[in-house]
Nucleic acid binder design. Structure first.
Length: 504
RNA sequence: GGCCCUAUCGUCCAGUGGUUAGGACACCAGGUUUUCAUCCUGGAAACCGGAGUUCGACUCUCCGUAGGGUCACCA
């Protein structure tokens, strides 16, 4: 039996990190068994449909290297892969269920259903459909349908039955059929609901393993009943842990800025780092390794090793891991990625703000881009090199390079730093004259740096005291990337200008 | 509230019927360094509670408790 897994997102335009998390396992499992991973679009909710959303999903999957083998826009033998194009198919199976007496027409209005729910809630009962149309005479119902009355179709949930589903991670889970609603399977607009469509499609597309988020566990018995009604074999069920937002303890929702893939793209996270990190949520490498790529993950991953508990999603560790991945890149690779990332940020219309980032609306992207293109190849590499071990995600590079890309203001108090104005002034005047007589090459500057260290000892100053005022005068901050490399990149004219304005 | 799932350091994961309960991030301290960062060394830090089974339970069972999920003509 060929393994076939699938992801079936609703094309709403938002790509949830949880989808990627799920796909990681779907894709890995299919790959591991030389099977196929399928992308199906569950676009049965016309109200939420967003144009271009399917392409966006695909693009995101590709960014992570989790490309489906088959599906929407990709083609395959089991199409169409868009549920809105499969209406006739669903209709056929709905009719079958009605004919079998496993489903029935329901003419209840939304208002009636609402009031039923309301009363139930008030009386502290479970808000469920009251079965008003369940026992309507099928012939009479049919004639009302033919007469043009608006209707939905509901599945006839059996009474007083134990429904048992088998789940790979959690084992057998038992449900009481009386606690499960007569689910609507066909809506008034002729579209199926998720429950019907997913069962029909998974069966027809010969899906062998349903790997999806754990919030679906409670709908599994509904699906099980449908499979039984059709006389179909249910695929193997696997439920991945829900990712919990550690700030509020709830599952990561799209209201949480960092739930969307774009947030990571924009912040400058590497897809391979994200993948590595999330694969460690609910799973661990048998050898205890922390760093591994997707291919290695696929090799070691087993569905049964998945944890049943829901992990809290701690960005801190991802940030650390992303930094590690950045440092593994060559200077050239990193430079390319940073420039691509800048282009992405500049081109993107996105203007969201986030509690985790304050740079998203900044013009700094353009300034930095211009700065980089103004550098010679040799300077570009030097620049990336001194930034590499100082950033954990690309966006960190913005504040770090403030003084290189724009006018920044000098804080004299910071410059003097409890020393006398006279001492600092005379020191800077002296340094300035040294710079003036220096031919601006990196070698000369590094030599000068060495001289200054020696000079400090002569003068009986601490080495730090010698460099501190230069750093503050030029970088306008007491922290900066390596000083002389920075001076070199800034250029002689700018450096002298900064020193002049620091001397009074 | 009904139903379902879950429970080891602050966080993510290991772990065995008898262990000094292990690793990573974060944190703290020290070292390297002209700042920051990187890097190195060390430290603090956990088995939700109560019964039961057992010679012995963090590990098995039950009951609590807590957290999460789900109860739509959304998926």
């Amino acid at each position: 039996m060929t393994v076939r897994t699938r992801v079936a997102p609703s094309p709403t335009g938002f790509i949830h990190l949880g989808t990627i998390y799920q796909v990681l396992f779907d894709k890995a499992w299919a790959l591991k068994h030389k099977g196929s991973f399928i992308f199906r679009s569950e676009d049965t909710d016309r109200a939420r449909y967003v144009k271009g959303a399917e392409e966006a999903v695909l693009e995101a999957l590709e960014w992570f290297g989790l490309r489906p083998e088959e599906g929407v826009t990709l083609g395959g033998e089991y199409g169409p892969y868009r549920q809105s194009e499969r209406l006739e198919i669903y209709k056929k199976y709905v009719d079958q269920l009605i004919a079998q007496g496993d489903a029935y027409y329901c003419f209840c209005t939304k208002e009636r259903l609402e009031s039923v729910r309301e009363i139930a809630t008030k009386e502290k009962r479970i808000p469920m459909y009251d079965g008003h149309c369940r026992n309507l005479d099928p012939k009479e119902a049919k004639s009302r349908v033919l007469a043009g009355e608006s209707y939905v179709v509901r599945m006839k949930m059996p009474k007083n039955k134990k429904i048992t589903i088998n789940e790979v991670v959690r084992g057998e889970i038992e449900f009481d059929s009386n606690t499960i609603d007569d689910q609507v399977i066909l809506k008034a607009d002729g579209f199926p609901t998720y429950h019907l469509a997913v069962v029909v499609d998974d069966h027809l597309m010969e899906i062998t393993h349903i790997i999806r988020a754990q919030e679906w566990i409670s709908s599994a018995p509904k699906h099980k009943v449908l499979y039984d009604m059709f006389g179909w074999k249910m695929p193997i069920l696997v439920h991945t842990p829900a990712i919990i937002n550690m700030h509020n303890g709830k599952k990561l929702s799209k209201r949480d800025g960092h739930a969307g893939v774009d947030w990571y793209k924009r912040g400058g996270y590497l897809p391979e780092a994200i993948l590595n990190f999330i694969s460690l949520l609910g799973w661990s490498h048998p050898e205890g390794k922390e760093f591994f790529d997707f291919v290695e993950f696929t090799k070691f991953f087993e569905l049964k090793d998945l944890s049943a508990a829901s992990p809290r999603f701690d960005l801190t560790k991802l940030i650390w891991m992303n930094g590690e991945y950045i440092r593994k890149l060559t200077d050239k690779e990193l430079l390319k990625k940073i420039t691509d990332w800048l282009d992405y940020c500049i081109d993107s219309k996105y203007s969201g703000v986030s509690e985790y980032s304050t740079y998203w609306k900044s013009d700094d992207y353009v300034l930095l881009k211009n700065f980089i293109s103004s550098l010679s190849e040799e300077k570009k590499i030097l620049w990336i090199n001194i930034n590499k071990e100082r950033i954990k995600k690309f966006e960190d590079i913005l504040p770090l390079n403030d003084f290189l890309i724009k006018e920044t203001k000098l804080d004299f108090e910071l410059l003097y730093n409890k020393k006398s104005k006279e001492d600092v002034n005379s020191h800077l005047i002296w340094v300035k004259s040294l710079f003036e007589n220096t031919d601006w090459t990196i070698d000369n500057l590094k030599a000068l740096e060495k001289d200054l260290v020696l000079k400090a000892t002569d003068l009986g100053w601490s080495v730090g005291d010698v460099f501190y005022p230069i750093r503050v005068a030029v970088a306008k901050s007491k922290i900066s990337p390596p000083l002389f490399e920075s001076l070199y990149l800034l250029g002689k004219a700018e450096v002298l200008k900064s020193l002049s304005s620091a001397i009074f």
